[in-house]
């Protein structure tokens, strides 16, 4: 018995191609039944996310299983499936790397583990997961946990929105009930506000030179619109200020902010300046209680986190190698394996 892994991902296929091969949740059970109908395939787990479509199968002949899978996918999408494939031990290593986030577009992202768990649970419920696959996936979850806890692979935020959320968390603790003001209704500020909302921010005030645009964005994100001339009046109530106006001059200066900060009775203010050219004078960062981050510094933090993650990859690979060895030992002991096929 061999473990086969075959599929396509963000590295081998463009989104336009990937989306044609994607298997929806509603189609998954039927697909698993068809996969198990391939000669020599005893069990199958299929992972379909926005970045990958992959099959993990226990099969007597991986080559036949691969041909069958390719045929099914090509039939579904109406074009030849550009598949990569691995047999054990590479197939095992591949799953461990995927579950640990090492094969993800953003290294170390943790969403993939939930997706792998979901794929396994669907296959188990459909009765498509055989004993070696049960064992393999349970082991993969342990590997992912171990990689996360023993290395820095999930260290730090990796996007502007997530950096803003982490910084806000380091200033305010919980974001539950915090108030945000958006100055200038740009797309990046909208995304950042949504990231903050996902962490508990409830009240968002949108202020824009064009009031209609402010009202439009406020309606989209469930906030409140405010005339641009009046934004300073709401200043004492807010905790986070996201600025992304198209103004050619500085909007937030020490002269303007210092008297306003006195009204806040020591409450900290997180200023996120996403505008280019910048809306905020860097000197406001030296005002007690004001924490200013512009788009450059947010991007730099995200990039630093990615650097830390990249440096951890070797340690993760070593951990994974150990686990692959452990899993192969189990397979040998329980006679679930044969020598890898040389012509595969």
């Amino acid at each position: 018995m061999n473990i086969l892994c075959a599929g396509l991902n963000h590295r081998t296929a463009h989104l336009d191609v990937r989306e044609r091969f994607a298997v929806r949740e509603s189609e998954m059970t039927e697909m698993l039944v068809r996969l198990r109908g391939i000669e020599g395939v005893s069990g199958a787990v299929m992972l379909s996310t926005c970045n990958r479509v992959e099959l993990y199968a226990s099969a007597l002949c991986p080559l036949r299983a691969l041909d069958g899978f390719r045929f099914l996918l090509s039939q579904k999408a109406g074009l030849e499936a550009p598949l990569y494939h691995h047999a054990n031990p590479q197939a095992i290593r591949h799953l461990f790397r995927v579950a640990s986030g090492l094969d993800s577009m953003v290294i170390g992202e943790t969403e993939i583990l939930g997706q792998v768990k979901k794929a396994y649970s669907v296959a188990a419920e459909a009765g498509a997961a055989t004993r070696p696959l049960h064992r393999l996936f349970q082991h993969a979850f342990r590997v992912a946990k171990s990689v996360r806890s023993e290395t820095q692979i999930t260290s730090g935020p990796t996007s502007v929105g997530s950096v803003a959320v982490e910084l806000a968390g380091k200033i305010f603790g919980s974001l539950e009930g915090r108030r945000v003001m958006i100055l200038g209704a740009g797309a990046v500020s909208e995304r950042t506000a949504r990231s903050l909302q996902s962490r508990g921010v409830r009240s968002v005030i949108v202020s824009n030179r064009t009031y209609e645009r402010a009202a439009e964005l406020a309606a989209e994100i469930g906030g409140m619109a405010l005339h641009f001339d009046h934004w300073e009046k709401a200043f004492s109530d807010i905790d986070i200020l996201i600025s992304s106006t198209n103004a050619p001059h500085l909007i937030l200066t020490p002269e303007k902010l210092s008297p306003l900060m006195k009204l806040r009775k020591g409450k900290p203010l997180f200023v996120i300046d996403l505008a280019v050219p910048r809306d905020a004078d860097v000197a406001i960062n030296s005002i007690d209680g004001v924490f200013l981050y512009d788009i450059g510094s947010l991007e730099q933090i995200a990039s630093q986190s990615l650097d830390i993650r990249r440096k951890e990859v070797d340690r993760c690979e070593s951990l994974i190698d150990e686990h692959v060895g452990g899993f192969l030992t189990w397979m040998r002991k329980t006679h679930w394996t044969e020598e890898p096929q040389r012509n595969f």
Binding site: F172, G173, Q304
Partner: peptide, 23 residues
């Protein structure tokens, strides 16, 4: 230390381990 990290805008790794300043 944490406030200094936040003000620096280039926080060192210790920043991620320190509690929020409000807490």
């Amino acid at each position: 230390v944490q406030e200094g990290q936040l003000k620096s805008r280039h926080p060192a790794p210790i920043f991620h381990h320190l509690p929020p300043i409000s807490i």
